[in-house]
Amino acid sequence: MDEYIPYLKAKQILTARLGASPDEIASWVAFGGLNAYEKHGNRLQPFSYQNPKHYGDGNYIRLLLGLYFLINEVGRFEPTKRYIARAALIDRWQRRYPDVDTIDFIVQQRQLPEFHPIAGFADVGDGGKWAQGMFDMADVERIESESPPASVEPEKPGRLDETKSEIDPNLSKLGKQQQAILLVIAIKGFDPMKIPDGEKGTIRAICEGEYPKIFDGNTSFDRAWDEGKNAKPPLWRMEHHESYARRGKK
């Protein structure tokens, strides 16, 4: 039976697995093959940003808040494209090209298409609800390769750098612990709903070794694990969860 989770749960998993931002999740829903669903009465139906009823609202993030996602799809989703929001690109290029104001010139020259989840393409000249869009990272990296900075300090790799993600400092302690667990599950390549038997100890060891300030007690990991396992819907499960559950009822 299909199991759906609300956007905020899906965001937590996608951020841990892929380092995704809300803007990028919106782009995947609009252009990249991540299916989303909205409520119609008591039923869930496929959602589309291109529905004309959304044209009066340029806030594609706000529309995400009411959506639902298939938990198995979120756990396995592999994007074919990565996206970066305009504000994030400005910050990236201000550090890379501190003396050059390039973004609007490049966009206006159509060297760098700017996409909008609702409108399709952003309209820089509009200055209104369609003016803030998303960029394909392949296009951004192409331009960067053609115009390398004079000197760039290499970024210092952080913990678990493969995920391009960090623990959100605004989360509660439990939220940070659960995000760290999801991060490690993603790095190990496990389906969060089918974690192989015996790997809980591996996940614990990595979490406690990499994040000692978060998992600072003897039972910190177990409490966070049980909270995530028993959440509705759950954040993770062991591969043979159902057989364990039946065994526990005997």
Rank of each mutant, 00 (worst) to 15 (best):
W236M: 02
I206Q: 06
K229C: 04
D197I: 12
I206H: 00
N51Y: 08
M137V: 07
G56H: 07
P149K: 01
P154L: 13
P157G: 06
W28D: 01
S48A: 13
M193L: 15
K250W: 07
Q108L: 15
D123H: 11
V184C: 12
D91A: 12
I195C: 00
K213H: 13
Y37M: 07
D99C: 09
T163A: 15
L174Q: 13
G127N: 02
G198Y: 09
I187L: 15
A150L: 13
N59M: 03
E227G: 04
E38L: 06
I13V: 15
V29D: 01
D99N: 15
L67M: 08
S165E: 09
Y55I: 03
A138F: 00
T163F: 10
D104N: 14
P169W: 08
R246Q: 13
E166L: 13
P6D: 03
M134K: 04
G32K: 05
D99T: 15
L44C: 04
Y4K: 07
D2A: 12
V124L: 13
I187H: 10
N218Y: 12
P234R: 14
A205W: 03
I13L: 13
Q109L: 11
D123E: 12
P22Q: 03
P169Y: 09
P22L: 01
R223C: 04
G209C: 03
E73Y: 03
G217W: 07
L44K: 11
I167S: 09
K173H: 10
G201W: 00
F135N: 05
G19K: 00
G66P: 01
L183K: 14
G175A: 06
R62Q: 13
D161R: 09
Y7G: 02
D139Q: 00
F121W: 08
S220L: 05
S27L: 00
R86T: 02
N218G: 12
V100E: 15
G158V: 09
R92V: 01
R237P: 01
D191I: 06
R159P: 10
I90N: 11
A30D: 01
I143F: 07
Y37F: 15
S243N: 09
D191A: 07
Y211V: 02
Y37V: 02
D2F: 12
P79C: 02
S27N: 01
